[in-house]
Nucleic acid binder design. Structure first.
Lengths: 115, 115
DNA sequence: CCGGATCCTAATGGATACTG
DNA sequence: CAGTATCCATTAGGATCCGG
């Protein structure tokens, strides 16, 4: 078997999930639709620029839908699409693995390599 | 519920899986232990520098074990640890999701946003 | 209230050459 | 055979300020 070609969708999915803040945003959305400002309250360390960028990426991927309520003041909701909802299985499998193999201290598992 | 803190292990796992070439390396290792040069044959586009870097990262995470056969010429095998083997469930869940939600063309799913 | 525009720095990845 | 070392281009992310 040759492995010269990657699955582009897999790559895209994995790289998206690996980006900073993405998983946090997804988790928050898994509970319920959220407004832009709610993310900021929930995660003060996440800047508006990155929040906006991540939401846009997820929207581009069809994982998140942006719903604009057309009244004043402007009111925007972000919610998971079906595609996004099915990501929950992935998120949980990563979490399960991480929980199972967590190590307590920050030490490397790797034994010293000879130089 | 507050989401001000991320699960560091989850983050680390997701970010590792999202790095370029990592998933390919894992897939190759899931079949059987491999030698350094075998990766290069299987994936010619992957440079020695990055291959070495990825393997080292996976080793540091305790996902891959580096086994040196002490005879001439030097002979090195990389193999999955139990921790690494259990990543297969994660890889498969990502693949399942990616397969289910693949789109054929390169077009964005997102409907145009008003500017 | 919901972002966009800018600027700057750090991290990532590719190419190439060299070594125990 | 199995890597390191170096250099460079691109990308990702944080900080800050501005606008409909």
């Amino acid at each position: 078997m040759r492995y010269d070609v990657m699955c582009p969708r897999y790559e895209q999915a994995a790289q998206l999930l690996g980006k900073k803040w993405t998983n946090l945003i997804l988790r928050i959305l898994m509970g319920q639709p959220r407004r832009f400002g709610e993310f900021r309250q929930q995660v003060p360390e996440l800047s508006e620029r990155l929040l906006s960028e991540r939401l846009r990426e997820l929207e581009d991927e069809g994982i998140v839908r942006r719903v604009v309520a057309d009244r004043r003041p402007v009111f925007v909701l972000y919610e998971l699409t079906p595609k996004g909802q099915e990501l929950e299985a992935v998120v949980r499998s990563i979490q399960t693995w991480a929980n199972a193999w967590i190590c307590i201290d920050g030490q490397s598992v790797r034994t010293a390599r000879r130089r």
